[in-house]
């Protein structure tokens, strides 16, 4: 399976993402600069964390108009897995590919530590290697991860099982402790925590690995007939 790691000016988790795919998973990955206009050669799209365009105006507000975003939208429409982590999540909400918005953390602090997450939905292409309700430990590193949406949107997310990860404890003010959500179709996931930073015991844990394994497993299963 071949992944595109989209690199915006100011991305800083692109190397970790590449490392996770290439070295820990043994799959293919390529860096793709944000002005690329063709993602047809890739099976999965990864939007890494960082501070694209210095978070000017709002986090993700400028990156979402990068040339590559039309292609990301197209990939999402084609049903390819699209994963946005941290700043990648912010870009996906700004682009309207996921509902809601990430606001400043309620205590105004940049929080950088490992937190406990609950897997709320283990029936997605990103989480099928986890158990439903499982508690996992994944690092967070953000100042604007306070997920906000209105009541109607929240109800919709809940009714459709689109809330994939929640924080075990509130620390940033996110609505109902939401840490990650998926689109209705189930192929676009945005999350603030960094699974790519939890792929080896050497760096403190491996709870992020099943997420990447899930994507690959699902892809292999759906492509067996074409092999």
């Amino acid at each position: 399976m071949k992944f595109a790691v989209i690199v915006f000016p100011g991305s800083n988790c692109d190397l970790d993402m590449y490392h996770a795919i290439k070295d820990e998973l043994g799959e293919e990955a390529e860096y793709v600069w944000h002005d690329t206009h063709d993602l047809s050669g890739y099976d999965g799209i990864l939007l890494p964390g960082g501070f694209s365009y210095g978070d000017y105006l709002r986090a993700g507000a400028i990156a979402r108009f990068s040339g590559v975003m039309d292609e990301v939208r197209k990939a999402a429409e084609e049903g390819k897995p699209v994963l946005g982590i941290c700043n990648g999540f912010q870009i996906l909400t700004e682009a309207g590919l996921l509902p809601g918005m990430l606001m400043r953390n309620k205590d105004l602090k940049f929080t950088c530590r490992t937190v406990s997450l609950k897997v709320e939905n283990a029936h997605t292409l990103f989480t099928n290697e986890y158990k439903e309700g499982e508690e996992i430990r994944i690092p967070v590193a953000h100042g604007e991860g306070n997920y906000y949406c209105d009541d109607a949107t929240y109800q919709h997310l809940k009714d459709n099982n689109q809330i994939v990860f929640t924080y075990a404890e509130d620390f940033n003010g996110s609505r109902n402790n939401i840490a990650g959500i998926i689109n209705e179709r189930g192929n676009v996931l945005g999350m603030m925590p960094h699974p790519e930073r939890a792929v080896s015991d050497l760096i403190g844990g491996t709870d992020g690995l099943p997420l990447f394994r899930s994507i690959v497993k699902q892809w292999r299963e759906s492509h067996v007939s074409h092999a």
Partner: peptide, 8 residues
């Protein structure tokens, strides 16, 4: 389109 995010 850009200057404001009307969600919030």
């Amino acid at each position: 389109r850009m200057l404001a995010n009307t969600v919030i």
